[in-house]
Amino acid sequence: MTDVVQDQSVIVDRSDEVERIAKKEAWRRRLPILPALLFTIIVTQIPFALSVFYSLTDWNIVSGVDREFIGFGNYGELFGSSLFRQAAWTTVVMTTASVLLSVFFGTLIAILLDRKFFGQGFVRTLLITPFLITPVVAGQTWSTSMLNPQFGVVNWLLERLGKDDPIQFAGQFPTWTIVAVLVWQWTPFMMLIILAGLQGQDPSVLEAARVDGANSRSIFFQITLPQLRPFLELGTLLGSIYLIQVFDHVEVITGGGPGSTNLPYFVFQRSIGGGWEFGQASAFSIVVVIATIIFATLGLRLLSSLLEE
């Protein structure tokens, strides 16, 4: 026993050395991230901080009156404004509808594509294309070639089917026309993410389920869908992030026309789009940020709880 005690006293303890090397190593590992991190912080956080500051001031850039600090005044005004409430509601409808519909259709199409058939790769290529189209081009194409009351294909078809007066899509249903174009563009994106999920499934699990006597329906709802959850979440998250910011489609399809002004477009209208009320517009934009965060987290929670049951 005494031998062991003596031995221990001569063991080199390198914990300090190891810690020193580990620290040096940790910095060497951190270094490559720093340029990207600094760039992102400077370009994204400074404008945001300035936005917060502006939102607490009364500042109209054309009136020539000096910027004045008014605390939360803009925010109070904002919730009293019916135009703001309208824009907020439009944002909620537009985002929720386009995210949910494109996830829904994306899932259906992904399931269709997840089986071997003639020309599978070609059909996938056809399907992905709408996502690649420049948003302003997509918006213009739909509002002219497709849905225009005079020379749009859809109205021409409806006329063949016996409907006499053409539908003024962008005029009568501005928000839903925009949603339709958004769903057309984002369904392919959702479809590809979900397809990646479907194809990453372990086939032996599906085989085991079949051997256990499950039919296709219960396999889908009890095995496939839960496994798809992270992919559905990812699609919802990325979709929400991009779709809550929609501006291009609004601009080219309705120009913010009757009831289709969402918050980003509203911020634009109130400031450089002609309003020049920078203080107020900043307050709107802060609300958009908060709404985005709430939206994305709520969407994720909702989806998770739905799938957990």
């Binding site: 063991i11 080199v12 303890d13 390198r14 914990s15 050395e17 190891v18 090397i21 580990a22």
Partner: peptide, 16 residues
């Protein structure tokens, strides 16, 4: 890492 003690190859300490 070796936190304590040493490793030798041919009596050469290679711990670090």
């Amino acid at each position: 890492f070796v936190d304590k003690g040493s490793i030798l190859i041919d009596d050469r300490d290679v711990t670090l």
